[in-house]
Simulated scan of single mutants.
Amino acid sequence: MSLDTDPPTPIQPLVALRALLALRRDPQDTRQVFILGEAIKGKSPFTLLNRFRRDPMGQERLRERRKLIDTLQRTDWLASLPEGTLGRTYHAFLAEENLSAQGLVEVSMASGMTMPDDGSDRHFIGRQLRDMHDLFHVLSGYGRDELGEVCVLAFSYPHQGTRSFALIATLGALHLSRRLKVSGVLGAVWQAWRQGRAASWLLVQPMESLLVQDLTRLRQQLNIARPTRYLAVLARLSAKGHAVARPPGV
Rank of each mutant, 00 (worst) to 15 (best):
D134A: 09
G172V: 07
L180S: 07
R194M: 13
L167Y: 08
G187S: 12
S183C: 12
A154S: 11
D131H: 06
G148L: 05
V150A: 05
V150E: 02
A169I: 13
D134G: 10
A166I: 11
G103K: 01
V138I: 12
H123K: 07
R122K: 14
Q160M: 15
G126M: 04
A173S: 15
K181C: 13
A166L: 14
L171F: 12
Y142V: 08
S164W: 07
G112I: 02
R194L: 12
R127Y: 03
D118R: 06
S111L: 08
S140K: 02
L171K: 11
C151Q: 04
D145T: 11
R178F: 15
L186E: 10
G112K: 04
D134Q: 07
G196V: 04
Q160D: 10
E149T: 14
H137R: 04
G112D: 03
L139Y: 03
E146R: 13
H137S: 08
I125S: 06
S156P: 08
A188C: 12
R144S: 11
R127I: 01
S108R: 07
L139K: 00
G143T: 07
V105M: 01
M115Y: 08
A173L: 09
R163I: 14
G126P: 06
G126K: 01
H175I: 13
I125M: 08
K181N: 14
Q195L: 11
E106G: 08
K181V: 15
G184K: 02
G187A: 08
L135E: 03
A101D: 00
E106R: 07
Y157W: 15
S111R: 01
S108A: 14
V105L: 04
R163C: 12
L99R: 06
L135Y: 02
G141S: 09
L180M: 13
F124Q: 01
R144Q: 12
S108P: 04
K181G: 11
R179V: 15
L99S: 05
Q191Y: 08
V189A: 11
G184W: 02
A166W: 12
V105H: 00
A101I: 05
I168W: 00
G112P: 03
Y157A: 09
V185I: 13
E149K: 06
G172M: 03
S156H: 06
V152I: 11
